[in-house]
Design a protein around this nucleic acid. Structure first.
Lengths: 217, 217
DNA sequence: GGCAAGATTTAGGCATGGCTAAAAAAACTG
DNA sequence: CAGTTTTTTTAGCCATGCCTAAATCTTGCC
């Protein structure tokens, strides 16, 4: 972005924040090795660009990257990523709760605002919403002090049979969001791991976690 | 800014929007010629940078710049500037009304968000606030279709004696904002043009408009 | 009219964050 | 273990938006 467009108290450029967020996300959602190539694909940049940015964040102490190994986050990198994710999820919750966005509309807006709002803004939103624990997609909102509140999510098509689970859907693809919604599969819904009526493709985009982890709080 | 940080539906970069906004603002607040040098001072950039950006916006049909004359806006430039100002003032109003910002805290945040929120966001905020006509600084909020709702503001120290006026204070300087607030001079307050108890310096930063123009609506 | 002051442009750079194409290095695989 | 494939880096380049320093041009005043 143009310098001066992101939050005044920002420690990272929007680009840097996206790399941190995506590394965190890939390690959460996906057991495969996080290569710079996969980062590049996820961020829609060239491998060379991803490689350069990872090198920069490694040199500043936020990432680790063993030669030909998986890109990872240091403690400070993880904490920075969680801050971005917290902003993203609070903003999404705010858009749905206060501004009547539908939950498939929030992603693009949050993707931008997560880099441009101040700490104060986020704190006020958090208070206004009553310190919510989850966002409209069923994802937990990290706390201000860096607790991830992370559940053990698994893909619906990989979950053990006949388990009671709670739905969580990646917010990246509005089409999947709508297909699922049409079948009553919405974030937070209870579900059994068989007989949900989704195609294999769609089921692969739906993630679930055991009901016991977050849903009695 | 980094590309990709501003609103997805944006026609202008944040920088470009700031130039448009400042040209509009200088022509509104200040009778002097708008030179690239004064633009540069206002935007805290070098004259060379301002000159280059003005040339770019002239070439794209949003500004006019007669040689050694005053920089001005074309119809489309004016309309673009009003959109930015509308976003700025709605965001400020939102921050004060909904997020409990004090009116001297809103400027920096609005200065960034005005370039990063979508049309949808602004429309929803506008509705949430009940389509307000003025912002917390006493400035009118342009309508979505480009009506400026502009009052005839004058500097307090230049206003005719003993006139009933309504206060309007530039949001650029928090110190002035606080000095004035301490004396009961806040945006929208009624005031007479004598006996207000401000120093000449502070009075020069306070602008007023006749009570009849906007305040019975 | 001449000249200083102000306004503007030119020239040459810098940083960020992208790009392509090609080289190099490591890791699988038969 | 040798070859193929994948991963990563290098080299050279582009655009934006900013910088300084040095012209150059116009205006306005005496």
């Amino acid at each position: 972005m143009s310098p001066g467009t992101h939050a005044p108290d920002a420690e990272f450029s929007p680009s840097e924040e996206n790399y941190l967020k995506v590394v965190y996300g890939l390690r959460e959602w996906d057991p495969q090795k996080v290569t710079t190539g996969r980062l590049a694909a996820k961020l829609a940049v060239s491998p060379a660009s991803a490689s350069a940015m990872v090198a920069k964040l490694v040199s500043r102490g936020f990432m680790v990257h063993p030669p030909y190994g998986s890109v990872g986050l240091t403690e400070s990198g993880r904490s920075a990523a969680l801050k971005v994710i917290r902003r993203h999820r609070l903003i999404e919750t705010f858009l749905v709760d206060q501004l009547d966005y539908t939950w498939d509309e929030v992603h693009d807006e949050a993707e931008i605002l997560e880099h441009t709002v101040s700490e104060r803004f986020i704190d006020r939103i958090d208070a206004l919403l009553g310190h919510p624990e989850g966002d409209p997609h069923g994802d937990p909102i990290p706390t201000a002090d860096g607790d991830s509140r992370l559940p053990n999510a698994t893909r619906l098509d990989h979950a053990p049979a006949e388990t009671a689970v709670v739905v969580r859907i990646s917010d990246a693809d509005p089409d999947v969001l709508r297909t699922c919604a049409a079948k009553g599969i919405v974030p937070g819904a209870a579900l059994h791991t068989r007989g949900h009526g989704l195609t294999d493709d769609d089921a692969a985009a739906v993630w679930v976690r055991p009901t016991t982890l977050l849903d009695e709080g």
